[in-house]
Design a protein around this nucleic acid. Structure first.
Lengths: 193, 193
DNA sequence: CCTACCGATCGGTAGG
DNA sequence: CCTACCGATCGGTAGG
């Protein structure tokens, strides 16, 4: 990891805990053991760090989603794969994913507009998967917009509680989410009747 | 609405769009048509506004949850009621709920610690409801912590997309969430077999 | 990567 | 609710 990557990693860690706006270049410099002015030998601006992390994460999420959708199988299986990919991206980039989710609005034009578009596209991907499953009879749902948003919000929430040293692995987390969203909470009463 | 309430409402609106740290008292003053120094005739500090909105919202959520749980009925019905109450609080306090969700970490001690506790308690309330339903055979779930967090994250996400002029009413949104989390996406195959 | 520094802005106070 | 102002801090540049 070269000095530029060190700066970015440290910045992401601070942005995560304090927020982008509340993190000063002097605090960042102190965490790195250097002067604030020296950081500018490696990066152009504070926002450049945020831009890089946001677009990298967005790219990771899209790559994961495309992998999931392009696999052969039922729509149910594709959705399960998309959930697993999304969980993987978050758990493997925990600090960066948190910063992406909570700080992207501090981007300036034109990056802000691009980010909004990318997020709308990603959500649309899930929504279309849901509609495909609805059309072919695999799924039953009332509102694809609401359902896609509910699923994505709960998946993104993982970044707020996932603990790499906890008892749940990313794979187990993904399996639990798939179970929850596909089967729901209500216990099957068939075997009892 | 007196001047103090006007200041708070305007601040909440700015905190929502720009974030707490990125909103200056001068910007707030300009939105109100007054000087920054004059605001301090009505409030003690910038953070005081954030404190007030966070604790008010937390109180609203707890009140709603207690209402839901104290109603007679099955655990399923109580969970449906808790979802409906949560949706109501968000949709009736859209800006304030968004600020609460995204800016509470900018509170200073001891308010920050209190807020963390309150959120843990609220989540525990949902988790215990889920476990009660699991114990009495209404629900089937693998991990109550994960399930409560998934449900709450998706409910909180409503604040990011709810449109008071949109086609979905808060009641409809709550019904869709209950349907999604209780029944899941998979279409019942019973009638086809 | 440092020293020295820029103009701008920050939350907030004094005094009226 | 205003004018006048405080010390502190901001992101960033110049020059080495």
């Amino acid at each position: 990891m070269n000095r530029k990557e060190q700066i970015e990693q440290t910045a992401i860690s601070l942005f995560r805990t304090q927020g982008f706006a509340a993190t000063s270049m002097r605090t960042l410099a102190q965490s790195l053991g250097m002067e604030a002015a020296s950081i500018y030998a490696h990066i152009r601006s504070k926002e450049e760090i945020l831009q890089k992390v946001c677009f990298r994460l967005a790219d990771d999420f899209f790559t994961g989603f495309k992998n999931a959708v392009n696999k052969p199988g039922t729509v149910t299986e594709k959705l399960q794969a998309a959930i697993a990919e999304h969980v993987q991206v978050i758990t493997e980039n925990l600090a960066a994913a948190t910063v992406f989710q909570t700080e992207w609005r501090h981007l300036s034009d034109p990056y802000l507009g691009q980010m909004i578009q990318l997020q709308a596209q990603y959500e649309a991907g899930f929504r279309e998967l849901l509609i495909t499953g609805q059309t072919n009879g695999e799924f039953e749902l009332t509102d694809a917009h609401l359902t896609a948003r509910a699923l994505l919000a709960s998946l993104n929430g993982i970044a707020r509680w996932y603990n790499p040293e906890g008892k749940l692995t990313p794979t187990e987390i993904a399996a639990n989410f798939s179970q929850l969203f596909l089967r729901g909470l209500i216990k099957d009463q068939i075997s009892n009747s």
